[in-house]
Design a binder for these strands. Sequence first.
DNA 1: CACCTTATTGCAACCGCTTAAGAAAGTAAG
DNA 2: CTTACTTTCTTAAGCGGTTGCAATAAGGTG
Lengths: 331, 331
Amino acid sequence: MAVTLKDIAERAGVTSATVSMVINNKPNISDATRKKVLKIAKELNYYPNVIARGLATRKSNSIGVIVPNLASSFVVRVLQGIKSTNRDIDYTVQLFDTVGQNENESQLFQRLARERRIDGVILISSTVTDEELNIFRDESVPSIVVARKCDSLDSVYVNNEMGACDATDYLIEKGHTQIACVISNKLGLPTKERLDGYKQSLSNHNLPFQEDLVFEVEDDGITSGVEVFSRIRERQPAVSAVFVPAGDMVAIGLIKEAKKRELRIPQDWAVVGFDDIPAAEVVEPSLTTVRQPKLEMGDYAINMIVDKIEGRESGIKHKELPTKIIIRESA
Amino acid sequence: MAVTLKDIAERAGVTSATVSMVINNKPNISDATRKKVLKIAKELNYYPNVIARGLATRKSNSIGVIVPNLASSFVVRVLQGIKSTNRDIDYTVQLFDTVGQNENESQLFQRLARERRIDGVILISSTVTDEELNIFRDESVPSIVVARKCDSLDSVYVNNEMGACDATDYLIEKGHTQIACVISNKLGLPTKERLDGYKQSLSNHNLPFQEDLVFEVEDDGITSGVEVFSRIRERQPAVSAVFVPAGDMVAIGLIKEAKKRELRIPQDWAVVGFDDIPAAEVVEPSLTTVRQPKLEMGDYAINMIVDKIEGRESGIKHKELPTKIIIRESA
DNA sequence: CACCTTATTGCAACCGCTTAAGAAAGTAAG
DNA sequence: CTTACTTTCTTAAGCGGTTGCAATAAGGTG
């Protein structure tokens, strides 16, 4: 059997309450007994049972990270950020995804909260709806959403509009005027914001926004890029540059297909992606893209949620992080 | 306050013990009370407090996944496999990494086990030593190691030797006789196994093994590949093919640098990687490589550990998965 | 009708730790 | 030498479930 407070207490000739206070560094314990207890605890190789402690303190000391799908490089990178923060975090990370489950994000959250499984939640999702986020807000367990802006809940996100605007600015400065924009219909709010940034840039440069320069793709994979290439060429042969808020993988598909069709990049076609995934550096020509500070987002998220859990922060907090355009060869 | 068993019991006019038995689907409860209790539980939106339950049952219903570093695509992919198994897993996944902590994998495991935090552990690491694995074996909490073979502990791994042998066979069949081998000194046992496979293939084809065709790199990043290129060219100008057990990123670096130095791939130099990461498909020419079934490994691991926890399996089990050579353009 | 089963529910201890309140002993003050 | 604090430790009541055993009532048997 595992050694418990009682075991230590017996050997030390005190009560388990006293041992508990020693273990937790509470005041009002004499130096003598404190030392004796600690010595015995070490001898017996004592570890507190966190479950029992959790029941008594009504804390689980763990935070849940809810993601729609772990098979997203963005999500994984944010997760890495969460795990690699410099701060010494006394919380365990429990990982939940909702793909293939019969619960959506908010239902899952509600259950976790009521089951007292977790003290706080980080939701990494750009597609979650406002109504769902309201459920998060209404639960008594603190939560925070990463990857989309939200008025009613703490959030960490990037300035998508500015990122898209910068990217488009860059293409315009390179002399392009017919700039296609490839968006994903699976990205939720950020898609809209990035499209707004694209429009903003055009408008700043007195260029007209043309609805039929906007192309939509179904997912953010490489095949979407391959597929959308023909659509762009057919519908808009005059296009000389493509901005791809749908993501780097789509941009890479586009580049690959363009090269196959004997277009030179960036001379005939300039391409700018969004996110800056590892493959962006690998593709040839390497991909100019808008980098999202994913590690930093995770870092902020974990720090904010811990502050919230421990009552150091109240009220709704937001952290908007800047994007950065990474110039490579494709534009 | 949250609703408890007692709340339900009061309204139902029974004892909380009875409610508990209903909730847990125990026998010896009349249909009438069962129905009544369930109805009230639903009305009150009852969720059992998993911490309290855990204390009583001495189970946490969660399994720990320990990884040395989450910033590894291999690890992440296995993790995805763990999370996406078809089986309905009643365990929560808690994620731990040891990079930047002052505990190594086995110390962490020992603590988690003693603190009763987890019912079982999946360790994803190829570099863990035999001595460390012995600590895992000696603890009473079931555990399993993914990514390396181990006699003393359940394990899930690929047949590295066969994978490397296949890759080398392939190069030899293409007519290559001077085949360099680039290994990582950060991969532990698999490095040795892959090197053995390489030797085996040479031997099978009556080619001599030459020690100085083996090159070592410090990490598995793209820069290692760039760096090792010159070493190979200097020391072994006659090399016409490179097998890179050190991993795809190294192989990609090698390709990029080779192209920069005006070598044609695969005509002048053939390159074969190991692992099959997403970027392998993106690089130009695309990378021929040995695929490791990472999702499947995760799948097996979670199933094995759950069986072990629930006592359906005993004794040491191993699962060896085959690799598969993915032919692309680089060889 | 007395006696024995069987089905169902209640009782109470327990899981291991925390914590508010109280008690004992020492100490300073009047 | 009381009285009133302090300091240090103990008591005991939880936290919210689970579970072995006792108890009760209903039904069956001779």
